[in-house]
Amino acid sequence: MANILKAHAGARANRSTGGDIVLVICLLFLAIIFAFPLYFTIINSLKPADEFFLFPPKFYVIKPTGQNYQNLFRLMSTSWVPFSRYIFNTVFITVVGTVGHCIITSLAAFPCSKFVFPGSVGFGKLVRTSLMFSSSVTALATYIIMNAFGWIDTYWAMIIPAISTSLGFFLMQSFMGVVPDALLESATLDGAGLGRQFWTIVMPLVKSGWLTLAIFKIQELWNMQQSSYIYSETLKTMPYAISQVTSGGIARQGAAAAGSVILLIVPVVFFIIIQSNVLETMATSGMKD
């Protein structure tokens, strides 16, 4: 694939190797600024207590230690609800919420972006507009609705709002809009129904779209602190539990640093896996038309 890219790059306007190198160096410099606080968070989690408050502050660890992580896990194991329960809750909500959101919004975005029928354009506009209403003020009405369904203090109260956000619909619509109509028309002529067109043509072509959406959702749900519709301790999430454990002032600062790394590392790992998949879809995009 790299060769194809290079061949194409060679055929493009006004490119030079020197320019590319300068570009990479500039980007690298900026990337270091962007990555620094991240680096610092990880470094901090490896610092023993006596290095935490050194003056002047150090950008590296003198004696790296796993003590903070051990402390965090020891503190977590003393919780009243077993910590594995919090982890299960977060993993469960993240998986169901992400998969559900991707499928439901893709299903809805497909006809709305590819066919014209009464209401298709209006609905798209309505969804896009709704994105601009700040979600914090709708909590009151949502609570009343949740209550009417009897969903307060159940998993539904966390999963359904996560699934029904407007973001995915808007994103999938913008990606599906560029799928060539000719492809779908020839599929119709070959006798493929709407379902077949959706799963075998549209979804593979907009893979980069729903993988990107999955990144957003995983990151959002993995870090979900606390839902205002949940009271039971057994239904609360891992970020909430970690924040409870680590809110102990200076004495818990090491554990807090370790906790923030744990919350960060899972979305980043997923990001790396997914991003390499997004790159793969590029190779197939040449098949369009």
Binding site: P111, S130, F133, T138, L140, A141, T142
Partner: peptide, 27 residues
């Protein structure tokens, strides 16, 4: 004629109506 299209949009449409549009209008 477009009933299949509506079927595809329905799950999200219902959720959107109940959990996004209704709270916004109420607000």
């Amino acid at each position: 004629k477009n009933r299949v299209n509506y079927l595809y949009v329905a799950p999200f449409f219902i959720l959107f109506l109940i959990f996004i549009l209704a709270p916004v209008v109420a607000a």
